[in-house]
Each structure stands twice: as structure tokens, then as C-alpha cells.
């Protein structure tokens, strides 16, 4: 039986990828942020998983406006790195986990989650920046990946309830997979940030910290937070945080908080990061 062994949440700021790729992680501006991930890099090395399901959003990198899937799932053997306008990041391609992914896609569709199935996908900073933060700069990535893109770009986005329920369905589906695999689920994006308009640069750290507390302790309440509140309190791009609810739903009722980190700013963004494990009872 496959099993979800941990949940990882982290922001996925493009400039962080650029800092890694250009060797700037020890610069005065970046060092405090990267230092906050040192614990995590060691932790994932000590607690490796066979597969990471990475919930992220594409930022007009692979999906244009021709097709805008609300929830999608990659079932390919591997994923190339997108050119987001600066040229592709100089990092290895991402290896897929097609057997588990196929099982997952089929199970979720049977469970009334109408996933768009992706046999081809190029991944952008939403997926690769978290990998760089957790794994550094290896020649090949240590974990296979199942990308799960969520539309958080075009409103309406899926509701918080739908996201938490999707996470719960992912947990059930993983546990019904016959092979013995350890699986992590990652929720990426956020925290508070706004990168457009006269209100750009908005950061709301107290709100971010409360969101983390609620995500850990009362996701069943948090799921009803309206998107309007995310937009007002955490900025128009803060609504990405609904993706953390998918991660949380896949961990079961109670979780252990292994690690927490906050840092302001990375570029325009409040960086937040959690490592959670399911609490067995």
C-alpha cells in the first residue's frame, strides 16, 4: 500500500529560482530566506519519499488562455522546464511517476473530481522553485513527481471546500494503490502578495501566520474562508493559498508540525513554509 508520509507547504517565488540559478543564495538580501530552508533540506534527505505530489499553479507558462483547467494531473514519464520569458531555468527535467499518477487520475475522476489529464506538460517556477528550495541543485532530482496544477490565475478559482475535499480524495486514492510507496504532498504558492495595480507590494504577515495556525489546527473551518477575504487581506495573488488546503486535506484529521518558517520579503512576496506529518491515532 502507498502512504502519504508528509506534507510540505512553501511559497514559490520566481526570483528565488533566479537566485539559486545565478548563485546568489548567500547574498545579504537572500541569505536569511535560504537559511530558513536549511532544516528542510536536511529533513527531506533524512525522510525521503518515493514520490511527491506537487500541487502548484502554472503562471501562463504552459497553459495559455486556450485551455484553462481548474484541476489537472500530470501522468507523463517526465516534464521539461518551461521558458517563462527569461529562457528555461538551467535545472534537470522532472521525472514523473506514471503508474501512481494514472491510478490517482482515474480514482479522482471516479470520485467526481473532473481532473484534466496531462500526458504532456512543461513545468514552471510554481513547481520547480519549491524543488530547488527543498533539494538544492542536484544533477538529478531525488524524488519522482506528480504535478497537480490548479487554476488560481483566472477567477473563479475552485472553492476552499473543493480544495480540501480534493486533498482527502487524494489520500484515499494513494492508500488504495497496491505498490508500497512513500508519498509526500506539497502545497505551493502564497503567502500574502500582490503583484499588480496601485496596491502592489501588499504583505500581511499576521494574517499569514493565522492562516498557518488554522491550516494546522482547523482546516475544516478554514475551508469556508471566501476568496474575497484572501484577496483583500493577503493580496490578489494571495488566493494561491487555497492550494495549501489540498495538501492539508491529504494529511488526515490531525497533523504534527515538524517545522515552520516565515520571511519577508522575497521579491514581492511573504514567504511561508511548513513541514507537517500525519498524526496517527
Amino acid at each position: 500500500m502507498a502512504k502519504i508520509v508528509a506534507g510540505i507547504a512553501t511559497s514559490h517565488v520566481p526570483a528565488v529560482g533566479h537566485a539559486v540559478d545565478s548563485g546568489k543564495t548567500q547574498d545579504a538580501y537572500w541569505k536569511p530566506m535560504f537559511d530558513g530552508y536549511e532544516f528542510s533540506k536536511k529533513w527531506v534527505k533524512d525522510n525521503p519519499a518515493d514520490v511527491a505530489i506537487i500541487v502548484y499553479n502554472d503562471h501562463a507558462s504552459y497553459f495559455g488562455m486556450e485551455i484553462m483547467p481548474t484541476f489537472a494531473l500530470g501522468i507523463a514519464d517526465s516534464y521539461a522546464i518551461c521558458d517563462e520569458g527569461y529562457g528555461p531555468r538551467p535545472i534537470p527535467d522532472v521525472e514523473g511517476a506514471p503508474e501512481l499518477a494514472t491510478h490517482l487520475a482515474a480514482s479522482l475522476i471516479m470520485d467526481d473530481f473532473d481532473m484534466t489529464v496531462l500526458n504532456v506538460l512543461e513545468v514552471d517556477h510554481g513547481l520547480t522553485v519549491p524543488m530547488s528550495l527543498m533539494f538544492g541543485t542536484p544533477d538529478t532530482w531525488p524524488t519522482k513527481v506528480i504535478p497537480l496544477p490548479v487554476n488560481v490565475v483566472m477567477n473563479p478559482q475552485p472553492s476552499g471546500e473543493r480544495c480540501l475535499s480534493l486533498g482527502k480524495a487524494i489520500k484515499r486514492a494513494v492508500e488504495q494503490f497496491d505498490e508500497d510507496l512513500t508519498v509526500q504532498i506539497w502545497g505551493t504558492g502564497g503567502m500574502s502578495h500582490q503583484i499588480q495595480g496601485a496596491r502592489a507590494g501588499l504583505i500581511n504577515l499576521p494574517w499569514d501566520i493565522q492562516f498557518m495556525d488554522d491550516l494546522i489546527n482547523q482546516p475544516e473551518v478554514l475551508q469556508y474562508k471566501p476568496h474575497l477575504e484572501y484577496m483583500i487581506e493577503a493580496g490578489s495573488e494571495g488566493v494561491e493559498l487555497i492550494m495549501w488546503l489540498i495538501m492539508r486535506g491529504a494529511l488526515g484529521d490531525k497533523v504534527n508540525e515538524v517545522y515552520r518558517f516565515n520571511h519577508v520579503p522575497a521579491s514581492n512576496t511573504s514567504v511561508g513554509h511548513l513541514i507537517l506529518t500525519p498524526k496517527e491515532d
Partner: peptide
């Protein structure tokens, strides 16, 4: 962002122009 990326500008550089 693809417009300002093509000119090598960062999000901070481009976003600040809207404020």
C-alpha cells in the same frame, strides 16, 4: 510578465511601475 521578461526586467522592476 512575458513582456517585461523579454527585456530582462524583474517582477519588482515592472510591478513598481503600477504604483
Amino acid at each position: 510578465s512575458k513582456i517585461f521578461a523579454s527585456e530582462g526586467l524583474s517582477y519588482v522592476e515592472a510591478v513598481s511601475t503600477m504604483t
